[in-house]
Structure formats: C-alpha cells, structure tokens
Design a protein around this nucleic acid. Structure first.
Lengths: 196, 196
DNA sequence: ACTAGAAACATACAAACTGTATGTATGTGA
DNA sequence: TCACATACATACAGTTTGTATGTTTCTAGT
C-alpha cells in the first residue's frame, strides 16, 4: 500500500478537521485536548502539529470549513423571490436554519470569537455569509426597497448581529419562541422598508 | 494590625476581582494564568482557590461585576426624553458608549460566552442590561410606539444582538463608522415604529 | 481570659496539556 | 539509486490547573 505524498497529507488534514469539528463542537475548544483529537483521528500528535501551527490553527481550519459549509447550504436553498427585500428575508431564514446546528453554533458564535479573536473571525465571515448579506442589502437599496441613507456596511453589521443572536437564542427556545424570533426579524426588515 | 475575618475576606475577594478584570480584559481568559492573578493581587494561589471554585468561577464574578458596572453607567446617563421610543434610542446609545471600553468588550462579548456558556452569561445579562431593554420595549409597545404584535422578548433578543455587534464593530471603526452604526440602529427603531 | 474550632490563607504535589526538538520512515526528483 | 524533502512518530521541558495538606489568624463558648 503506497500512497502519494499529497494523498497522505490531504487525507490526514481532512481527517483532523473532521474530527476536530466533532470534538470542538461537542466539548468546546478548551475542553478538547490535542491528544484527544489525535487519538480520534488515528494519528499522532506530531502529525497534528505537522499540519497545523498549533491547536488554534486547527480550530481556525475547522471554522473556515464550517463557514464554507454554511455558505453552501444557504446557496443551495437560494430563493426564487423577485423582490430584493423578500429575497433578503428568505435568505436570512435559510441562514438561521443552516446555522442552527448546535455544532455550528458553538464553533462560530461561541468559541470562534474567543479563540480566533473577533477580527480574525470576521475576516473569514466577511468572505462568506456576511458578504451575502451585504450584497443583498445593497441590491435592496438600489431597488429602493431599503433606505439609501444608511451605510450598507453598518446595516449589515447590525442585522448580522441580530441573526447571530437569532440562532443562539433560537436554540434553547421552543417552536413558538423560534417563530417569534423570525417574526421579529421580518419586522425589522419591513420597518426599514417603510423608511424609504 | 488585626482585621476582622470578613474584612480580610472581602478585601481579598475584591482585589482578586479587580486584578482579574484587568488581566482577563487585557490578555483574555486563556492567556491569563492563576499564578499571574495571584501574584498581581499579592496573595497566594491558595487564597484564590479559597474564594473561588476555579478559574472560571473567578471569571464569572468579574463578568457579573462588569455587568453591574455597565448597568450603573447606563442608569447614570438616564435620559429625560418623554417619548418611550426616543428613550429607548438614547438608552441604547448610552449602552454603546458604556460598553465600548475594550475591557468590557473582551469580558462580556468575546470571552464571556465561551467561558461561561451563552446560557450562564445570559442569566446574568437578563438581570441587568437586557432587562432594561426589555422593559423599554414593553413600554414603547404599550404607548403604541412599537408594534404590539411582535413578542417583546424576541424583539429584545434581536436588538440586543444588534447592540452587541454595534459595540464590537464600533471598536475598530473610525468616527464615521461609529456614526454610521448609530444611524443604522436608530433606523431600525424608527422603521419598527412605522409598522404600528 | 482561655481554648476548641473554624475561617483565611500558604505551600506542596500530582496530573494533564501544550509546543518543540529530535528521530524515523516513506515518497520524490535528479 | 541516492540525496533530499515531506509526512509522521516519539520524547521531552515547561506551565498550568485543581487538590491536598499545612499554618496562621480570628471567633465563640465557657
């Protein structure tokens, strides 16, 4: 059994990220040790440190993959609404659905900021989900469905914060609570549209 | 020099919390060791573990104190506006101002959720700043300045998320950016009021 | 006032973890 | 095929955490 170097390498990397996602998502960053990860991945700790600078670096890779996973899930559920505002609202609901996985939550919203720093995390985020939101807002503004005098970046931040919270709070809530949250978010959008 | 037991005890506790606030806020929870804290506080590690169950327990005390500090700062800046909606907006701006201290941010929004869990953190939060927001929203709804069909708790969550993000993103931004954020938040409120 | 005992604090210790340094094996290019 | 690089394993040193065990200072009952 002989594999090419790149095969070995990428297989190990992928396994470590996969296992890392599970363990980090389950026990949190601090409570997940590198011995645990290495053992679960069936490699030595040396291999882990060969592929990743340190524990946080592996975590960063996990988070990056998770953002990608999320972005893909959202794209897959892309809406067919013609109204840019409705598109925004539906896209947001898709985000909430996709990000409501407990593992996603812990990785992206709980441990992510603490381990990677909100700056570093933001850099990844901005390339994926938040960017989708920004573009949607800009389109809605161009179409006159959202007020043009609000800087799109600032509005994106605020709504992104609201969505993150929707996911976090929605986790512990019952069906009625989750419905209330969606209603509240929709109202935020609709209220904004009244300002145009 | 002889002090009563309670004097000794509360003095040590207070010092540990004070020093903990500085160090946790500066280097973060993970990068702050209990030896560092004990030395800076001028006590032994044994004293720390006498007063607090573990490192996270001290951190929890720091966070609790920080929420209290914040709530007080907001109360002190209480507005005189008569319109409940305007009161909400001004109260929010006071929150942003008070929470924009870098140490507050790291403690409450970055490390807090990861160390204490968003649940535990939420329990403290709900007793202070978020509760203020909830009450304000309910009053505005009662006065017909916000739509009554949105559950107040859900709306509180969303706006609280937006405010937290306002603080976090406002930190790195320039004056224009901070202004834009305040404008965006005000627009959210005003939009909602148009739905009544 | 004196003395058990509790509370406040200090010291010592064991286990665990992180990151690095060093060693080995497997693939690769000349 | 041979020198080298890459992928991985093992060994180690330094820190950290929480606990167990001392020591000192106060408190309460007689």
């Amino acid at each position: 059994m002989s594999r090419t170097n790149e095969e070995r390498s990428s297989a190990s990397r992928a396994t470590l990220i996969k296992v890392g996602r599970r363990l980090f998502g389950q026990h949190g960053f601090a409570a997940t040790s590198t011995p645990m990860i290495a053992e679960a991945a069936g490699v030595s700790r040396g291999a882990l440190y060969h592929h990743f600078k340190d524990k946080a670096d592996l975590f960063a890779a996990v988070v990056e993959a998770e953002f990608a996973r999320l972005a893909e899930a959202i794209d897959d559920a892309a809406t067919e609404a013609s109204d840019p505002l409705e598109k925004l609202i539906e896209g947001g609901e898709n985000f909430i659905t996709a990000a409501s996985d407990p593992v996603s939550q812990k990785l992206l919203f709980i441990d992510g900021p603490a381990v990677l720093g909100s700056g570093m995390l933001h850099a990844v985020d901005t390339d994926t989900t938040t960017n989708t939101l920004l573009i949607g807002i800009e389109e809605a503004q161009a179409a006159g469905r959202l007020p043009r005098d609000i800087p799109a970046a600032a509005l994106t931040s605020m709504m992104s914060g609201a969505y993150d919270r929707a996911v976090i709070d929605g986790f512990g809530a019952d069906e009625a609570g989750r419905l209330a949250i969606r209603h509240a978010i929709r109202s935020l959008w609709e209220g904004l549209s009244k300002l145009t």
